Amino acid sequence: MIGVVLWSSAPREKAIIWCEDHAALAYLQGRANLTSKGDWPESGDLVELDYETEGELRHARRVEVVSGYRRSDLSHLLREAGQGATAQPVLRVISNDKIRGPEPQPRKVAAAG
Results as ranks from 00 to 15, higher is better:
residue 100 R to D: 03
residue 100 R to F: 12
residue 34 L to P: 05
residue 35 T to R: 15
residue 11 P to D: 13
residue 89 P to V: 02
residue 103 E to M: 08
residue 34 L to E: 10
residue 80 E to I: 04
residue 29 Q to S: 08
residue 69 Y to V: 00
residue 108 K to W: 00
residue 112 A to L: 09
residue 108 K to A: 07
residue 21 D to C: 12
residue 97 D to C: 08
residue 49 L to C: 07
residue 48 E to P: 11
residue 76 H to K: 14
residue 84 G to S: 13
residue 2 I to N: 10
residue 108 K to E: 01
residue 40 W to D: 06
residue 91 L to K: 05
residue 60 A to Y: 07
residue 31 R to I: 01
residue 53 T to D: 12
residue 64 E to W: 02
residue 58 R to G: 01
residue 57 L to W: 03
residue 24 A to I: 03
residue 50 D to W: 14
residue 104 P to D: 12
residue 101 G to Q: 05
residue 16 I to D: 06
residue 12 R to F: 00
residue 9 S to A: 10
residue 73 D to R: 12
residue 18 W to L: 10
residue 90 V to T: 05
residue 106 P to R: 15
residue 46 L to E: 04
residue 51 Y to P: 08
residue 24 A to V: 02
residue 98 K to Y: 03
residue 29 Q to F: 07
residue 20 E to A: 10
residue 30 G to K: 06
residue 9 S to W: 01
residue 19 C to L: 13
residue 15 A to W: 09
residue 62 R to Y: 14
residue 66 V to C: 07
residue 100 R to Y: 11
residue 106 P to K: 08
residue 85 A to G: 07
residue 70 R to V: 02
residue 109 V to G: 07
residue 82 G to H: 13
residue 78 L to C: 15
residue 81 A to W: 11
residue 24 A to R: 15
residue 57 L to F: 03
residue 88 Q to K: 10
residue 86 T to M: 11
residue 17 I to R: 03
residue 91 L to G: 04
residue 47 V to W: 15
residue 39 D to P: 05
residue 23 A to L: 07
residue 72 S to V: 00
residue 107 R to D: 07
residue 56 E to G: 04
residue 12 R to W: 09
residue 79 R to M: 06
residue 5 V to M: 08
residue 83 Q to P: 07
residue 75 S to K: 15
residue 35 T to S: 15
residue 52 E to V: 13
residue 10 A to S: 11
